[in-house]
Design a protein around this nucleic acid. Structure first.
Length: 583
DNA sequence: GCCGCCTATG
């Protein structure tokens, strides 16, 4: 084949998007004897990888006489793309036995495989090889190592690589910010972002901003969130789907649902992700009907929901008392949308049934779910919590035991179970359980919560009013509770949730004629068990009490009240919130 | 010449 046609052929290979064209090119190469050319086969292999036909790529690779470093690396990348990073590691081990030396592409790819598998041991070995091979200051290799250490929860390891690098680019900085973000160290993530801005060698990109917005969301930091939104507008990446979804999520978690709505409406052609963000956000604000409306709208627009969309939908039903709709949606998941309900969906439904007192149904459903032990722990925790509210000691005991057996969220189970006994007056059981807990060395981390008002952050701990203006908050809460009682609120028996409400500045003054800061602070603390205690939670889940309280408050004036969820670190460190790290 | 790093919805 002449050089010109050869070049043309490769060009065509690079742009192939059909499997049949790839196989016919394959046949053509075979006939013309070009399968002996490593370069050409690499191109063809790449076609198969792009078409996600890893089986063909693999076979072609195995038939190669002399695979070079590119052949090895692209097949590894292909395995990663198709969700089998373990094969990439296996290939790398094979490659190390061959005479082909890895290059920077190989090392970055392998590091990526370690990240995905959270294989710290293998990652560290790789790091050593990187050093031996002289890539310890290579930009891309080090960026992937930073990411790898982060995904393996070795923040210090990531930082060491970051600090020792020669040049850093926006990707490196973003990786480092993401490491802190993913390991529940949001304040450090923001610090790194500030440092990046100070040096300002290049502007942040959509990756950086999406990451920073997420940090703001997880910290409940509205002001930095808005500032980042401003940067988004300045940079011009508003139309980026990930960024706009992150903004929707951030505003919702920072108590500004109306802003979430504004951002969402500006998205031209929202995909399943912004839709899901909105559905989840509306659900959190008790706007279940809006969630369902969005869901139906999405279906009409032929956007395919995913499993998380259904978590949002079921949450919406649960938090707005739409029990029968919820059951209907659960049943439609498989039949209408081809999504098999998983433990998290059953958790929502068990929670929903339990919340409205249909405890026996909830219990029957929970028993019928057959999945892994660790996955069902949250479901039994929901049932346990509902049993406590309804005073069903029998179901509480079984739920508690199932959780303790699963080894997940054990401390919470002990505490809730003990509270159930206490409510039923079974003090012997309470003491017995506390002793058992002590013996087992189970310790419940005290929760902590915070709220941002203007530029100050106020932090609260269970039973601790030593924060700034604590006395004022206490007296305001008492006043608020009195007003709520006057209007018929009878809850207050120890909610599992904490309602965060934000009000537009103007309406605050109207409502009770008090200063908005006070109101915002107080409204951060509306779960009022026995007198006034500041209750802390890990995961905003409006219990029926809170829901009632929320409805009542809404009736006080026509103001727009917004529920605020500031805490989403519960998936870190064995289910414990590590928010203490933030101060 | 062919291959690589960072972002999102519970």
């Amino acid at each position: 084949m002449a050089l010109y046609t050869m070049a043309h052929f490769i060009y065509k290979l690079q742009n192939l998007s059909l499997f049949t064209s790839a196989t016919s090119a394959h046949a053509h190469l075979f006939k013309s004897g070009l399968l002996a050319s490593t370069l050409t086969v690499n191109h063809l292999n790449n076609c198969y990888v792009r078409l996600r036909r890893i089986d063909y790529a693999r076979q072609l690779f195995e038939e190669m006489a002399e695979p070079n470093v590119v052949s090895w690396s692209s097949l590894m990348a292909g395995y990663i793309d198709t969700g089998s990073p373990e094969f990439a590691l296996w290939l790398y081990a094979r490659m190390r036995e061959s005479s082909v030396m890895p290059n920077e592409f190989t090392l970055a790819t392998v590091s990526n495989a370690c990240s995905l598998l959270a294989e710290l041991k293998t990652g560290k070995k790789l790091h050593a090889q990187v050093a031996i091979l002289g890539f310890q200051r290579n930009l891309v290799v080090c960026s992937s190592l930073v990411d790898m250490y982060g995904k393996c929860n070795d923040v210090d390891g990531a930082r060491r690589v970051f600090d020792l690098m020669g040049h850093r680019n926006v990707v490196t900085w973003t990786s480092m910010i993401a490491v802190y973000a993913q390991n529940a160290r949001g304040h450090e993530a923001l610090q790194v972002f500030r440092e990046f801005n100070r040096l300002m060698m290049e502007p942040p990109n959509s990756f950086t901003l999406a990451c920073v917005i997420n940090v703001c969301a997880s910290l409940g930091r509205l002001v930095p969130g808005k500032v980042t939104h401003a940067v988004v507008i300045r940079i011009g990446c508003e139309s980026n789907g990930v960024v706009s979804s992150a903004l929707v999520d951030m505003y919702s978690k920072c108590g500004c649902f109306s802003y979430s709505d504004k951002v969402f409406r500006r998205i031209h052609d929202p995909s399943v992700i912004p839709y899901t963000s909105m559905i989840v956000s509306a659900a959190k604000y008790g706007l279940g009907e809006l969630s369902l409306k969005l869901f139906e709208q999405m279906i009409r627009r032929a956007i395919k929901p995913n499993d998380i969309t259904f978590v949002g939908v079921l949450h919406a039903c649960s938090h707005s008392g739409l029990v029968d709709e919820g059951l209907k949606y659960l049943n439609s998941m498989q039949t209408k949308h081809g999504i098999t309900p998983s433990a998290k969906h059953y958790t929502c439904v068990v929670d929903m049934l339990g919340r409205t007192g249909r405890l026996n149904e909830a219990y029957q459903l929970a028993k019928s779910v057959k999945v892994d032990g660790s996955e069902v722990a949250p479901m039994w925790a929901a049932l346990l919590s509902a049993s406590r509210l309804q005073g069903r000691v029998d179901i509480a005991i079984e739920s508690g035991n199932r959780i303790i057996d699963s080894n997940e969220q054990v401390a919470c189970a002990y505490v809730t179970l003990s509270n159930t006994f206490a409510l039923a007056g079974e003090w012997n059981n309470v003491h017995g359980l506390r002793a058992k807990m002590k013996n087992a060395g189970v310790y419940k981390d005290p929760g902590c919560s915070w709220i941002e008002v203007k530029d100050s952050i106020y932090q609260f701990r269970a039973g601790d009013l030593s924060c700034e203006r604590g006395t004022e908050i206490l007296s305001f809460l008492q006043e608020l509770q009195r007003k709520m009682r006057e209007r018929g609120y009878v809850g207050g028996g120890g909610g599992t949730g904490l309602v965060f409400v934000e009000v537009e500045e103007e309406s605050v003054e109207q409502i009770v004629g008090l200063h908005s800061e006070k109101l915002a602070l107080a409204f951060g603390l509306i779960s009022i068990p026995k007198g006034i205690t500041i209750r802390i939670m890990k995961n905003l889940r409006m219990c029926s009490d809170c829901h009632e309280a929320f409805k009542l408050i809404s009736q006080i004036e026509d103001a727009e009240f917004l529920v605020r969820d500031i805490n989403r670190f519960h998936h870190f460190k064995n289910g414990y919130c590590t928010c203490r790290d933030f101060w």
